[in-house]
Simulated assay, not measured.
Amino acid sequence: MTIELIEHTDPGCPWAYSASPALAVVRWRYGDQLDWRLVTIGLTESHEQYVKRGYTAAKSAKGQRRFERFGMPFAPQVKARPAATARMCRAIHAVRLQDPAREREAFRALQFAQFTTDLVMDLDDSLRTALSHVDGLDGEAVVAALDSPEVTEAYEADRAEARTAEGSPTHFQGKHATSDGPVRYTAPSLVFRSNGMQLEAGGFQPLEAYDVVIANLDPTLERRPVPEDPVEALAAFEYALTTAEVAAIMTPDLSVPDLVAIEGLLIDAVAEGRAARVQLGDDALWSVA
Rank of each mutant, 00 (worst) to 15 (best):
R87V: 08
H171F: 15
F192A: 00
L266N: 14
A247L: 14
Y55R: 15
E140H: 12
R104H: 08
D32Y: 06
V246K: 00
H47E: 09
S194D: 02
A160S: 10
E150Q: 13
P188H: 12
T2E: 11
H93S: 08
V51Y: 13
A248I: 00
D35V: 09
E105Y: 00
A141Q: 08
C89L: 06
L190G: 01
S60I: 07
Y50R: 09
I41T: 09
F172R: 14
L241D: 00
E7F: 14
N195S: 11
A247G: 09
H93I: 11
A269M: 13
V231P: 05
F67A: 04
A58E: 14
I267Q: 12
R96M: 08
V213Q: 08
T85Q: 10
P206I: 06
A157K: 07
A80D: 15
E4L: 13
T152Y: 03
E232A: 15
S194G: 02
I262F: 01
G136D: 05
L280S: 09
N216I: 15
F237A: 06
H8Y: 15
F204K: 02
N195T: 06
C89F: 01
E153K: 14
A86Q: 13
G203M: 07
N216T: 15
R27S: 10
Q198N: 03
A284P: 05
G12F: 06
D283I: 11
P11R: 11
A144C: 02
R90D: 05
H47T: 10
K52E: 15
R29C: 05
E166Y: 12
L137D: 08
V246Q: 03
V95T: 10
D282S: 04
L254K: 07
S287G: 15
S46Y: 06
E150I: 05
G174Y: 07
I214K: 01
Y239C: 05
A157H: 13
V142K: 00
A130H: 00
L43M: 13
T178P: 04
D138V: 13
S20Y: 03
E238R: 04
R108D: 08
L127N: 00
V95W: 02
D125F: 04
E7I: 15
Y30H: 07
A109D: 01
D218R: 11
D138L: 11
V260H: 10
